[in-house]
Nucleic acid binder design. Structure first.
Lengths: 194, 194, 194, 194
DNA sequence: CATGAATGAGCGTTCATTCAT
DNA sequence: AATGAATGAACGCTCATTCAT
């Protein structure tokens, strides 16, 4: 029993790696095909075009991401555990799917001015879910007296920057990642928990 | 008396804008020339090639950045003021030179796997200076009893992520920036200051 | 009992229409297959290749044309009736098989420099038969004293141009066709009949 | 003193010949460039694209054609001389510019279903002028008592078919052209002049 | 009889770059 | 300082065709 479309799968694997390493415009369809051990036209047999292949990859990566975001805990003894969870989630993803994460971190920024682009659409969707989750967490933490009485939207904003910054840092491998999880969690705990 | 090379300046201005909007690979020399009101060969008269023009722009932008980083205060009544200063510096840059900042945020990530690239070199240099500055701040803050006794390198790491994340957020215009400065500063103060 | 090769027939029907509308080079095998509701390889099952399909269509169309040409009347009270007959034959064909006629009128001209091409071969064959028929008509018309004493080969030449020009005009739908038949017949009658 | 754009001119010359011989779709830009002794990109330097080159050629050819049509005599002792003139004009063009004429005869038919195409536009324009000229001729011929009392629009129609058929015949070199002029003129004279 | 998967060859087009002027 | 003309290399993509099933 093999995978149903072995060559298609090879194409996607090669494309993820090359797009991540060289960006969308910096990756040619010929290089993708060669790296996958197939010929160029096969890309167009399985996908509408180069953009279609890119979109396919991105949507697959985000589908998993969205799924995980939706399954974050909403009932925990301590509210801060949920903050820990969402920070940890981002680190997990960066370690489990380094290439997809790198791909998003490296190719999407250049597309954000194009509001209709997949990158923009998916990143906005992700941000919306993160903001919703964090807002509820912080509100509940304050209500319960577990968190300091901070300005909710602004603090959420800072946490989003931190969360996504960590993802980028991990993906781009910008520096030592050892202890990053604990450091981030501690930093936030000291800032939030009374 | 006007600028010495008016057309060269036009070229750089056009290139900054176009590189920022469409990325390096997404910007053609022809479009740059047209936007600058000159012809393509002039690019090669003033710069070695397309890469040289890009490098010129990046180095100019970073020269100013480095200069500001080097002039951050090292003596302040409260150490936390220095943390405020470096956070503020990044926001100031993003507002004063939005196109250069956007350019860096959007085109550099796709080049970071190439260790020899200007982007990589300059970003690493910037990070080194930020890390050095923050390390000394936090060390002094702890020594003076102003900051909690945190793990220095790890906390610096978190602060770098936060600082650069804010820069990106501002540049890419990802969301409302109102109150961001205060929110970030407050978040850090609560986490650091005892 | 239905047709023996229903899908083959569908292929031919689709090909006739598409070749007529878009020319040979402007029609892809994929579009033919899709229009016929089958897949591309079936074309190669039923025909040697794209050229073979085209040739098949052309030969079929011409077989009917040749047949009609061979059955033109050779004994009529008035010789001019035969001229009327051949003019009428061309108009009938253009109306009965508009797509085949259009196909020939639109795709063959671009192939006539290639003496070995089916188009050239079939068109030459048709012209030969028309010339033979008309030559005999005019000769007999003159002998009988029904026609003016015109130069036979040259007059035949003019009639061929007229006959085929009418076919083209009808097929390409270049203008109003109402009254064309009568006009052409009258024009010729006045010119030929004493 | 040479031509202002020698290589551009070579491109056009090569394109006229190749388009005429192989049709638009059957001619590749590479073959045009090679036949002109230049490289492919030069086509795109001088013209917008392959279509632009084709259009340029067609418009040039028709400009001359229109010019000649507009300069046909409108005052002649005998009206039939004007019929002779327009028949002769078409034969002259076919002999002076055989390649342009062949090009039009071979590539345009396949485009006539596309009402917006240059071919359609120019051919319709030409036909309009021919119809206008012939209509006036025949009307005047009848009024003067020089021509038989024929139905004007229908007779014009037949003459258009004949005129353009002759052009095609000449261009495509379909048969012996010797005596064609005299034959056509005689045929028409007998049919029209009382 | 019919298809899904795959390919070699080639196409129209663009790009960064050069060179004579 | 600046340009018009030109090119080598490559790119995204399509096409007719094949082959195992």
């Amino acid at each position: 029993m093999g995978s149903p479309h072995p060559k298609k799968h090879e194409l996607v694997r090669a494309a993820v790696r090359l797009f991540a390493e060289n960006g969308f415009d910096g990756t040619t369809t010929l290089r993708i095909a060669k790296a996958a051990g197939v010929t160029e036209p096969l890309i167009y047999y399985h996908f509408s075009n180069k953009d279609g292949l890119f979109t396919h990859i991105l949507e697959n990566a985000f589908a998993d991401y969205f799924n995980r975001l939706d399954n974050l805990p909403t009932q925990t003894p301590k509210v801060f555990e949920r903050i820990e969870a969402i920070i940890g989630l981002h680190m997990d993803i960066a370690m489990e799917k380094p290439e997809e994460t790198y791909l998003i971190a490296s190719t999407c920024p250049a597309r954000l001015k194009n509001g209709a682009h997949v990158c923009t659409r998916l990143l906005n969707e992700a941000r919306k879910r993160i903001v919703r989750y964090l807002s509820e967490c912080i509100k509940e933490g304050i209500d319960r007296g577990e968190f300091a009485k901070v300005n909710i939207p602004q603090t959420v904003n800072v946490l989003v920057v931190l969360t996504q910054g960590i993802l980028r840092q991990y993906a781009l491998g910008l520096d030592q990642r050892r202890g990053m999880r604990k450091a981030a969690v501690d930093f936030c705990r000291r800032s939030l928990v009374v």
